[in-house]
């Protein structure tokens, strides 16, 4: 089922007096339970597309349709609500809140997403997700004491704790070594299947494409080819 549709999305920037078109009419459908990887050279527009899809910046033209609603016509507060409750994010860096423990990072995300669960249920859910990402033994640790791979695992746990419909991952393995990258990608793939999440991921690492169900090659703001 197509849970997320990108329809004719364009993005232009003014570079001095020159108008630059970064995205030139992108059409894309993402399916539940699938990892879609966006690949392409630097400047091909893949990260811009991901951030527009995630509601982190607006498109110049086109529609982002999520759950049948056009996000492009929503105001900032409506987009924020969707972002906090329906989307999860994994960035190139973990971007964990430095003064919160691993457990508190997830608790914060549940607060932000206005989880209806009571405290006990929240704790149970946090333990479950931390077990999934194999971080339950470090739940009282602060980010400063975690390794790069551990941080990224916590970032993934934070991205899925509130059971989002869509997971956006922007170069999630860029700051990790090869072994850690495989671990993290395997985790994203497994969670996508287990939780039936729609995952859109940007990567430049071809080795990681084996974890994707669909590969979209981009060049110069356009989609070159789809690979299943």
């Amino acid at each position: 089922m197509n849970a997320f549709i990108i329809d004719g999305v364009r993005k232009t920037f003014m570079n001095g007096d020159v108008k630059e078109e970064i995205l030139k009419g992108i059409n894309l459908s993402l399916k539940e339970g699938e990892v879609t990887a966006l690949v392409g050279a630097s400047g091909s527009g893949k990260s811009t597309l991901l951030t527009i899809a995630a509601g982190l910046q607006p498109a110049s033209n086109g529609k982002i349709i999520f759950n049948g609603n056009n996000m492009s016509t929503m105001n900032a507060e409506q987009v924020r609500k969707i972002r906090s409750s329906q989307f999860g994010f994994v960035f190139q860096f973990a971007h964990l809140v430095p003064f919160l423990t691993v457990e508190e990072q997830l608790m914060l995300m549940l607060d932000v997403s206005q989880s209806k669960r009571n405290k006990r249920e929240q704790k149970g859910e946090i333990n479950k997700i931390l077990k999934l990402v194999e971080m339950n033994h470090r739940k009282n640790a602060y980010p400063g004491s975690l390794s790069g791979g551990e941080k990224q695992r916590v970032a993934i746990a934070r991205a899925i704790i509130h059971q989002p419909k869509v997971l956006f991952a922007d170069e999630p393995t860029a700051s990790l070594d090869s072994n850690k990258s495989k671990e993290v990608m395997s985790l994203i793939q497994n969670l996508t299947k287990a939780l039936n999440v729609t995952t859109l991921m940007v990567t430049h690492d071809e080795e990681m494409l084996i974890y994707a169900d669909k590969i979209i090659k981009m060049s110069d703001g356009m989609i070159l080819e789809h690979e299943d």
Binding site: R80, S85, F87, S113
Partner: peptide
């Protein structure tokens, strides 16, 4: 600022 940005990105008002 970076922290505020990330908190905003994950949906904090």
């Amino acid at each position: 600022m970076a922290l505020y940005g990330i908190l905003k990105a994950i949906g904090l008002k």
